[in-house]
Design a protein around this nucleic acid. Sequence first.
DNA 1: GCAGGCGATGTAAACGATTACACGCGTGTT
DNA 2: AACACGCGTGTAATCGTTTACATCGCCTGC
Lengths: 339, 339
Amino acid sequence: MRDVAREAAVSVATVSRVLNGKGPVHADTQRRIQKIAKRLHYVPHPVARSLITRRTLTLGVLLPDLYGEFFSEVIRGIDLCARRSGYHVVVSSSHSDREETEAMIRAMRGRVDGMIVLYPGTRPPTLKSILPDRFPAVLLNNPSRSFDSLSIDNFGGASAMVRHLVGLGHRRIAFIAGPAGNSDAAERLRGYRDAVRACSADADSKLEIPGDFRESAGYDACRRIRALRPRPTAIFAANDSMAIGLLYGFREAGVPVPKEFAVVGFDDIPIARYVTPPLTSVRVPIAALGEHATQLVLKAVEEGPTHRKTRETLATTLIIRASCGSEGADRKKRNAAVV
Amino acid sequence: MRDVAREAAVSVATVSRVLNGKGPVHADTQRRIQKIAKRLHYVPHPVARSLITRRTLTLGVLLPDLYGEFFSEVIRGIDLCARRSGYHVVVSSSHSDREETEAMIRAMRGRVDGMIVLYPGTRPPTLKSILPDRFPAVLLNNPSRSFDSLSIDNFGGASAMVRHLVGLGHRRIAFIAGPAGNSDAAERLRGYRDAVRACSADADSKLEIPGDFRESAGYDACRRIRALRPRPTAIFAANDSMAIGLLYGFREAGVPVPKEFAVVGFDDIPIARYVTPPLTSVRVPIAALGEHATQLVLKAVEEGPTHRKTRETLATTLIIRASCGSEGADRKKRNAAVV
DNA sequence: GCAGGCGATGTAAACGATTACACGCGTGTT
DNA sequence: AACACGCGTGTAATCGTTTACATCGCCTGC
C-alpha cells in the first residue's frame, strides 16, 4: 500500500479511501490510484484490516459428527448465503461431546464475527460463559434464551406423518427412535406420540423401538418388529437411514413392503427415492436451514448490540412414495420422471 | 494484555513470552502471569497475532459443487487433521466454474496459510497467476507441475474392476461414463478401456454410454443398455449414483440383477451396501484423501520455501458384493454382519 | 473583501500482539 | 579484580491497515 501511495504521489490515507470508496476523493486521483494498484497487483491485507475494523468477515460453523448428506447441504446453504454477503466460513465438524464443542468455540473467538452452532444434544453448550456478551450466534435445533435459535419442525413433521398413516387405515404404528439425548430424535418421538394419541391409534410402549439413526439400527429392528404381537402394520423410522436399513432387513427376510408393513422415514435424503420400494419420508429443508441461519447471524452482526433475539421454526413437507402403500403415491410415482 | 501486564507489574513483552512459552522467564513470574491471565479471562487476540507472525493458522479448502457423501468425508478428514495441528479450516464449496473458483482463491489470499483445491475439470485453475509464488497449496485429483498434488487412483481402480468382471467370465462389459471434462471420469474411462484391451474383452465403442454421475443418468442408461446387440453381460457405472439409478431402472423393468446383468459402481458410497442387490464397487479412501492433503499442505507451510513439491496417488480397494454375481461375494455377504 | 463551508488531502494515532535489542545483575573464569 | 556470559526483563519498533483531526485552497454568499 505504501508503494502504491508513493507511486501515485499521495498518502496512504488517500489510497485507503479510494480502496474503500469512502471519504471524498478527486475523481482523477481515484482513477490514478486504482490503475496503479492494479498494475502493482496490490491487494489489501485482510488481517491488518481486521485488526483495526474489528471485523473478520468470517462466520464460524460448528457441526457435530453427522451423517453426510445433512452436513453438506447445511454447509452449502451457509456458504452460499455467506459468500453473497462477502463473508467466509470456517467450519469445525465432527464434534461428539460438549467439551470438544466448547473448546472449538473458544478457539474461534476473535476469528469470527458470528457463529452458527448445531449441537445435537438436548442441552446446548454453555455459550454464555465462553462467548462475549451479545455475541452474534444462532443455535440450530436448540431453543435458547440467550441466543438466536432456529429449528426444524420435527414435532410437526412426525405427527403429520403419523396422521397420514392413520389416514391410510393404519392403527398400529411402530416407531424406531433416534439416539437418546438427541434433540431431533426427542422431538420426532414426541410428535409420534402426540399424533398417535390424538388419532386414538394404538399407544403401546412396545411399539417404540430404540435406535441410533444408523442403518444398522433399522436392520436390527427388523427382527424385533416381526416378533411384536399384535403385529404393527406400519413402521415409522425416525430417520431415513434406519428406514433403509429396515427395508434391507425385510428384503433379506422376504417380507414384502408395503404389502406386509408400510415403512416410512424422516429427512428425505436423496437416496430415499431410489431404494426399493421408494421411501415415503418427511422432507427437511436442510439447505434452507443453513441459509436462514446465516441470514440471522449476519443480521445480528450488522445490527450489533441493538439486535433482538429471535426464535424460529422451519416447516417440513410430507413426501409420499410407494413404501407406505398409498395408492395415490403409487400411481403418481409410475408416471413421474426420475429426477 | 496490557491489563495483565499492569496487574502483574511486568511489561507486555514478558506476558507475551509466558503465553507463548518462548524466551527465558522466571518460573515465579510465569505462574503469577498465568494466574492473572486466567482471572482476567484474557485470551490473546488472534488477528493481532497473525498480523505480526504472518501466520493465520488457517487452511483454505475449495470444493466444487459435489455430491454429499464425498463432500462431508473429505472435509471430515481435513478438519480432523487440521485441528490436530491447531489449524482452522475455511471452506468454500459449490464452485461450478473456473472463474468462480479463481475468485474465491483470490478472496482467500492473506487469510489462509495454505490451500487445498479440488477442481473437477481437466484443466485446473491457473493458480500460478493468482497465488504468490511458492504458496503452499495442494491440488486434489489434478496433477500439477507448480503445486503439490494428490490423486485417487481412478485408473487403477477402474481397471481392477474390469479385471474382476472378466475373472467372473464376462467378456462384454458396458461402461456408463461420467461427465466430459471431469478428470475422475476421464481416468475411470481410461482404466476401463485399458483393462478391456488388456484382457481382450469386447472393445466396442457402443458399449460406452454417456453419463453425468447422477442417478438419472443411470436410470436413463437402462433402456439403451437393453437395446444393445449383442447384449453386454455386465455394466460398470463410473460412479455409484449412476449404478443405483440403473438398478432402480432394472427393477422397474423387471430385469433381474445380477442374473441378467452384473452391475458394478465406483466410490463405494455408504448406501451402496443397502441397495438391492448390494452393490459391488470400488472403495475410494475419501477421508484419507482429505487427511493426507492436509498433511501435505501443513508440511509445505512448515517447510516454507525449501519445500519440494510432491505428487502422490492413493490406492483404491475392490469391494465385492452381490450385484456382480460373484458367488464368493454372495456367500460372504450372507454371513457378514451389516455394519 | 471576508467569514464560513466544503472538498481534497496529509499526519499520525490507533488496533493488539511479537521480538530484536539493550540492560542490569549474579556467577564463574582467568 | 576484571571480564565474559547467560538469565530475566523492559523498551520500542513493527506488522498493514483505518480514520479522527488538521490543513489548505477555493468557492460562495453577504
